[in-house]
């Protein structure tokens, strides 16, 4: 199960990098509003997915991983936001940080459901890892599809 999670993390990071480079080639065509929308969608979904995967991969180091995913979300948001102007840069930093925090929060609840008052034996660990990996993969692929559809329209 860990190999599947590592594989899906690799796919997610690859899709993030591919989305960044395919948007980077057309960055002079973006208007201000389009830059804001693309930064909002891409930074939120990519930092959320990467934070969720990293939190499930290293569940022992709680504080280190949650701090690192926050920092990673800010870096991803700043990369996407620095394509257009200052407004999208600020939006990217803020939404990337929020996405990173939310991803580590979902990972913490998935590992220990009694944090939220749910029963502790809500699911087995294998089921939880499979479900979260497939959820993150589907979110990332759907967001990438909607991002690439913007080039056609």
């Amino acid at each position: 199960m860990v190999f599947l999670l590592i594989f899906i993390t690799f796919i997610n990071i690859t899709v993030t990098g591919w989305g960044y480079f395919s948007l980077y080639q057309r960055r002079y065509l973006f208007s201000e509003r389009f830059g804001f929308t693309v930064t909002y969608l891409a930074s939120t979904s990519c930092s959320f997915v990467i934070a969720l995967n990293l939190f499930l991969l290293f569940p022992q180091h709680f504080e280190v991983v949650s701090t690192f995913t926050l920092f990673l979300g800010i870096v991803v948001g700043a990369l996407f936001g620095s394509m257009v102007n200052m407004q999208s840069f600020i939006a990217g930093i803020f939404n990337g940080g929020v996405g990173g925090i939310m991803g580590s929060m979902l990972g913490a609840v998935a590992l220990d459901p009694s944090l939220c008052g749910l029963p502790a034996d809500l699911w087995a660990e294998q089921d939880m890892m499979l479900f979260m990996a497939l959820l993150s993969l589907s979110i990332q692929l759907l967001s990438a599809c909607m991002l690439t559809l913007t080039n056609r329209l």
């Binding site: 389009f34 929308t37 969608l41 909607m146 913007t150 329209l153």
Partner: peptide
């Protein structure tokens, strides 16, 4: 379409 993207995420 940009409103679709914002509402979706």
């Amino acid at each position: 379409y940009q409103s679709v993207l914002t509402g979706y995420i």
